[in-house]
Simulated scan of single mutants.
Amino acid sequence: MKKGLELTAAIPGEDDVQTANPARLGVRLRLARQTRGMTLKALSDAANCSESLLSKIENGKASPSLPMLHRLVGALETNIGWMFEESDGEEGIIFRAGTRPLIALDPLRRGEGISLERIIPYSAGHLLQCNIHHIEESGESAGPIQHAGEEVGYLLAGEIELIVDGKSFMLAAGDAFVFNSELPHHYRNVGRERASIFWVNTPATF
């Protein structure tokens, strides 16, 4: 597999914010917020904006100013470039090997020794999120985290410990799992080689 691409983007300016697709930007904000388990009130307080305005932004009915967007991104500990990333691929259907982004540290799933190979782009047009989680030896996700949705995974290689709602499960290549995303969950590599998990989850309802 070719080396993946780091998630980089030019820092957007005020004009970029004003011309951005409000619906896409709102979807990204809501996804980031709910993945981190934050309520509207918690994020609005952290970003020093009103809850009603944040709700309008998430629903595509308003656009944030650039300073507000920076505050929101800072509170969510995500990458401002991700908020403006466009869908990729041949007509949004095919995503070729070697062209998919490989994110060394996904800001939505903080941890050590983890990279995500994005199978499909985050987009309002998809009901699913799908990545391959690559976990280096002794790597582990931050957590536990919990959010809306459902998780499904298949261990492609290696050995991991999956902890869901305080219960520990040891998985080897070929094992699969499914659980409600609202249950606290995290994982770590317990083997002596890199582990890879094909991971699908449903994000919050758009």
Rank of each mutant, 00 (worst) to 15 (best):
V73D: 00
H126M: 13
T99Y: 12
S63E: 01
M1E: 10
A124K: 14
N180E: 10
G13F: 02
S115F: 03
E6C: 14
L102E: 10
L76F: 05
I80E: 00
G113N: 07
N21K: 11
H133G: 14
E193G: 15
S52N: 10
P67C: 00
A9N: 12
A62H: 05
G174T: 09
S138Q: 15
G191P: 06
L31D: 04
S52I: 04
H70A: 06
I94Y: 13
R71W: 00
S52R: 14
G98R: 09
R24H: 08
G158K: 09
E117Y: 14
E86P: 06
Q34G: 08
P203M: 02
V178H: 15
F169H: 14
H70T: 02
R100H: 00
A142P: 03
R28L: 02
G153I: 04
E85I: 09
R110P: 11
G60H: 01
V190H: 06
G74F: 00
A46W: 01
L72V: 01
F198P: 04
E193F: 08
L69K: 01
N21R: 11
G174E: 05
V73T: 07
P67V: 00
H70R: 15
D165Q: 10
L29R: 02
P101C: 08
M1S: 14
I114P: 04
K56C: 03
R118L: 15
L43E: 06
N201W: 11
P107N: 09
D16R: 09
F179L: 05
I163G: 08
L43Q: 10
L7W: 11
T202P: 06
I120E: 03
G113F: 00
N59D: 05
S52D: 05
S87G: 11
K61W: 00
G81M: 08
E159R: 14
E182S: 11
P121T: 05
I11N: 12
M68N: 13
P64C: 04
S168G: 01
M68R: 15
E182M: 12
Q146L: 07
D106G: 12
E137S: 13
A47W: 00
P12T: 02
F206D: 03
L183R: 14
T205M: 10
G81F: 03
H147A: 06
V164I: 15
A104K: 13
E58V: 06
R192M: 04
S168H: 12
F206P: 15
R192S: 10
I120D: 03
S181R: 03
I103V: 13
A124Y: 04
R96M: 07
L105Q: 14
P121N: 08
M1F: 10
N48S: 15
A173E: 06
S63T: 08
A148L: 13
D15L: 12
F179N: 07
A204M: 07
G153P: 08
I93Y: 07
C49Q: 07
R194A: 02
E137M: 12
M38D: 01
P12C: 02
L31R: 15
G37L: 05
R188N: 03
R109V: 12
H126Y: 15
G153R: 10
R30P: 10
